[in-house]
Amino acid sequence: MLGLVIDTALGYLGIGVAHDAELLSYVVMEKPSTVTSLAVPAIKNLLESTGHKKEQLDEIIVAAGPGTFTGLRTGLSLAKGLGMALDIPLVPVSTLDAMVHTVQKADGILAAAIDGKNSNLYFAEYTCRSGVLKKTVSEMVLKAGEGGYHRQGHARIVGWGVDQYEGMLNKIYTEGIDLQKLDVLQMGGALVRIAHGKLYDTKPVSAATFIPRYLREPDAKTKKQIKVVYEKDKAV
């Protein structure tokens, strides 16, 4: 199985190529404004440098959110186009799941947190026992200034842009937290491991109909699809 990894959910551009569960190569460009212009050239280069052709790809593993507004739309619409044209599925992986898998596993509580802007914190929590991670709190939104979630113990938290929420996160755990910044270079491997281990119900989906999972606000529902017919020289 040859997989392409597209990770733009947090605003940076991460592109990887994987053979089964093994990540062959992964590059990261951290300037958000370059994602649209550099994504395709980066994919081209990476496939060439690993000795592959795009036609050999079997799947596209994507960081499917939560994440930044622009980052998600950019990467996921590109992945949709690629998947449909190559007739291969997407494998959407939760960004929070992938973040937790970037760090060394040690028994105890692990959590992942992303700045969701406007005082929103995207959050999920996991418990590690004998090297096996289990999700104990599904993806949710914590509001700054509001109480809510509390838990006994100490947690290691992998964060992205969450420095200003440190006090709030500290209050969740009775024995405090150890907050570490996400090492983006580890995201490629984490996404591939989750996709291939089918962890957290991760499974391939149709590129054409894939809908990302949003944590904030209701998903827009109403839409009408109309077919339009134009007739020559019939207008006013």
Partner: peptide
Amino acid sequence: VNFAKGLAYA
């Protein structure tokens, strides 16, 4: 734009 790029490149 990104959807179109995906199609065009692939």
